[in-house]
């Protein structure tokens, strides 16, 4: 554990909680892509199946349980509790164009051809592109609420911090995981355009295009 990893995890946690609270407090999921949230729920589910097979640390277990729980709670709020506010017409990204190629890639390129490892690899690849339906939705409507931009910023910051974590681990532990690194770079790059807008617009709610 290093400082980049810890702050990255906390940033990820903050993003998840910001989104949950935003939906809960406003009683609305307007402007939020339910498809991206389903993809994140799939990501956590397929990645954290090792909860059942191996114990790493109390921190690790707690965070995994919280991430999974929050992901499903978010999906529940969007598709059940506040379904009337869900903007399905603008959430029109075709997720099969992500899930199918990513599934194929996970079977082809992985560290070990075993069930859990392929699911882990699938989750890594899928996470790198899971935000695309959300970014697509924002570019389609041309606007995002302030709180939604904070959510996206924390989510992007988390993966950017993980890149520093991997640099740290490479130099000080000789550890590197090429699959995670390449996917992490892709994921971070997808946020770059957004980061630029977030910083230059001072994080205020705004109309913008991607």
């Amino acid at each position: 554990m290093n400082i980049f990893r810890l702050i990255g995890d906390l940033s990820h946690l903050a993003a998840i909680i910001i989104l949950l609270l935003k939906i809960w407090k406003s009683r609305s999921c307007a402007g939020i892509s339910g498809k991206s949230q389903i993809l994140f729920a799939i990501v956590f589910t397929t990645r954290y199946l090792d909860l059942l097979t191996s114990f790493i640390s109390l921190y690790n277990t707690c965070m995994k349980v919280i991430y999974i729980g929050c992901a499903y709670a978010t999906v529940y709020l969007i598709y059940m509790k506040f379904r009337a506010t869900y903007d399905g017409n603008h959430d029109s990204f075709r997720v099969e164009f992500l899930v199918v190629p990513v599934g194929g890639l996970a079977v082809l390129i992985n560290h070990d051809f075993s069930f859990l490892e392929i699911l882990w690899t699938f989750s890594i690849y899928l996470e790198s592109v899971a935000i695309l339906p959300q970014l697509f939705m924002i570019s389609k409507t041309g606007e995002a609420e302030t709180i939604t931009t904070h959510y996206l910023f924390c989510l992007g910051l988390y993966r950017a911090l993980y890149l520093f974590n991997w640099i740290w681990r490479f130099y000080f532990e000789g550890f590197f995981d090429m699959i995670a690194i390449v996917a992490g770079v892709v994921q971070t790059v997808l946020y770059c355009d957004f980061f630029y807008l977030y910083v230059t617009k001072d994080g205020k709610g705004y109309r913008f295009s991607i």
Partner: peptide
């Protein structure tokens, strides 16, 4: 290198 028996990152 990478060891496959468990991933400690989240």
């Amino acid at each position: 290198g990478i060891k496959v028996d468990g991933h400690d990152e989240l």
